[in-house]
């Protein structure tokens, strides 16, 4: 569904290569987490995967990017976006501004695609309910809290039902309950066959939902594997990505963690390990 072949990228008018020689294939219906320190190139990667690089940002791309069977470079942007959604980092800038209520804001993308009104209404209602923002439907999107705006931004993409959904730190301003809601919704999308790429700092929640984790450091893909191996890796702390509380607890427990057992990244793994290690 998403395929990068030795992709490198440099922004226009800048000397540094921001993404270097990245190759990976994400099959349909996989939920992939992307972790990396600030400035690693995560946002840039998200824009490559959704076609805004090079279509909006220009710059120099080498290598190939294929999304949903289409070469990103050779497909016009309007065609690309009909099947790829991007939720970008700052929810304030994600709001269209064209609409004065949350419900209309959610419908904006559907209007542009020419979706018939009846279907539009039912999709908007479903999204409002799914993200538990139905009570905000008539409010102005600009009078919401950052977290609520983030939910609206996510909803405005979900409602378009793209086959590939890329989200750039979509829960940064949400409380744990709100983030939980988003993670659950993304899990459901995966079950429906949507390919999800999720850039996220909340490692513990990521470990619960992701099928696979990419670790991006200095524009290089340093690790690519299941959460239990990537998130438990020692290097993560050195790269400034941090580790889950469960991994940290097992490391701190030192000899109490069963010898030879992989470090835990979820509550269940930690509980099982400590139960085994207990005298």
């Amino acid at each position: 569904m998403i395929r990068l072949e030795s992709l490198s990228y440099r922004y226009a008018e800048t000397p540094t290569t921001v993404l270097r020689q990245i190759s990976l294939t994400i099959p349909k219906g996989q939920l992939v987490g992307v972790v990396g320190p600030s400035g690693a190139g995560k946002t840039t990667l998200a824009q490559v995967m959704s076609g805004f690089i090079p279509h909006v940002f220009g710059g120099e791309v080498t290598g190939a990017v294929t999304v949903a069977g289409r070469s990103v470079r050779n497909t016009p942007l309007p065609l690309l976006v009909s099947d790829i959604g991007l939720v970008s980092q700052n929810p304030f800038n994600q709001l269209s501004g064209a609409k004065f209520s949350v419900a209309e804001e959610l419908a904006f993308g559907l209007e542009n695609l020419g979706v018939p009104r009846g279907e539009m209404v039912s999709r908007v209602d479903e999204t409002l309910r799914r993200l538990r923002i139905a009570h905000l439907a008539e409010r102005s999107p600009y009078q919401l809290s950052g977290g609520q705006q983030q939910l609206v931004a996510i909803g405005s993409m979900m409602v378009m039902r793209p086959g590939v959904l890329v989200l750039d730190e979509p829960t940064s301003q949400l409380d744990p309950a709100g983030s939980g809601l988003v993670f659950d919704a993304l899990g459901e999308l995966r079950e429906r066959g949507v390919t999800v790429v999720l850039i996220e700092h909340k490692l513990e929640q990521l470990a619960e939902v992701a099928d696979r984790i990419l670790a991006l450091v200095d524009g290089e893909l340093r690790m690519d594997g299941p959460p239990s191996t990537v998130l438990a890796a020692d290097e993560l702390a050195d790269w400034g990505i941090g580790r889950t509380r469960f991994t940290a607890a097992a490391v701190a427990a030192a000899t109490h963690w069963p010898c030879g057992r992989p470090l835990p990244v979820t509550l269940a793994e930690a509980a099982a390990g400590f139960a085994e290690g207990a005298p």
């Binding site: 909006v56 976006v81 800038n93 209309e104 904006f108 979706v115 018939p116 009104r117 908007v124």
Partner: peptide
């Protein structure tokens, strides 16, 4: 400096599409 991000957000919502638009509000 926010203009780029706004442009991306608009494109992502198919603002550049040439299809005949429909309207949510009647």
């Amino acid at each position: 400096s926010e203009v780029d991000e706004r442009a991306v957000a608009m494109e992502a919502r198919a603002f550049g599409a040439t299809t005949r638009r429909t309207s949510y509000t009647v």
